[in-house]
């Protein structure tokens, strides 16, 4: 027996409201991140991740209040990503009750930021989020490149090398999203997930492409991920976190039930 594989529902939050249409029939306000977080907590989510997609810096204060409200009522780990650019952003999120922050574009822009953040706040709260896309042609060896700005901007940086570098800089966890699979519902990019999971000593969270519960199992068994993140399969009430865990348990994985 050992540490359980984690299931992490992810909420996209725009100006304090959950977007990408969460649909719980019995929730009064489906756009309220606090109500939705409470629901996932009740279902047995191991952590909750908030991705702040608010466009303007001014409106980003809203996510701080969201985190505060959730942290007052939900006693499981909370991660906040999106718009984390300075040490003061991290301080604000941790003070509001977040346990970890996800750093993405700011790390690409200036990798030392991750080092400074880990030294100041500890690796345990620094998650580096990597958006990767396959760039090799057919028949060529596997190769993935990291992209920023929601997958629109290429960087020329190799995803596996980047993950190793970020861990050396102090990242305590990697949140890995396949841009090829995100939104497709055909499952994780398992080759990518495994390549990075096997290359770094820290936990890797697989993300992007979950459409069925068996995809979550594959992320762990074939992708070697420590945790799996999904949004839409939980949001639309297709499956509960509890059901996901039962499927993982039946596949022989250790979960918290």
């Amino acid at each position: 027996m050992g540490v359980a594989k984690r299931i992490i529902p992810c909420l996209d939050v725009d100006n304090g409201r959950v977007v990408k249409g969460v649909q719980f029939v019995d929730i009064r306000d489906a756009g309220d991140p606090v109500e939705i977080a409470k629901r996932y907590d009740e279902q047995g989510a191991d952590e909750i991740t908030f991705l702040d997609i608010t466009a303007t810096a001014h409106d980003r204060d809203t996510i701080v209040h969201v985190v505060e409200q959730v942290a007052d009522q939900v006693f499981i780990p909370l991660t906040v990503g999106g718009g984390i650019r300075e040490l003061s952003d991290i301080r604000r999120m941790l003070n509001a009750g977040a346990d970890k922050v996800g750093i993405n574009s700011a790390a690409v822009k200036r990798p030392e930021f991750v080092k400074e953040a880990a030294e100041k706040f500890g690796s345990q709260c620094i998650v580096v989020a990597i958006d990767a896309k396959r760039v090799n042609g057919e028949g060529e060896p596997d190769k993935w490149e990291i992209f920023t700005h929601g997958g629109r901007q290429g960087t020329g940086i190799d995803a596996v090398e980047w993950a190793i570098k970020m861990v050396n800089y102090g990242a305590g966890e990697i949140l890995l999203t396949s841009m090829d699979r995100d939104g497709t519902k055909v499952g994780f990019d398992l080759d990518l997930t495994r390549a990075i999971s096997d290359a770094v000593p820290v936990p890797v969270i697989a993300s992007g492409g979950v459409g069925e519960l068996k995809h979550l199992v594959e992320g762990v068994t074939e992708g070697h991920a420590e945790a799996v993140l999904a949004a839409s399969i939980f949001h639309f009430g297709e499956y509960t976190v509890q059901q996901a865990k039962e499927v993982m348990r039946d596949a022989g994985l250790e979960v918290r039930l």
């Binding site: 027996m1 540490v3 359980a4 594989k5 000593p201 820290v202 420590e226 945790a227």
Partner: peptide
């Protein structure tokens, strides 16, 4: 490594018994 010889991640992060 665990008792089966599988590699374990550090930090120890998550829900354990």
């Amino acid at each position: 490594k665990n008792s089966n010889g599988d590699a374990l991640k550090v930090p120890h992060m998550g829900w354990n018994q």
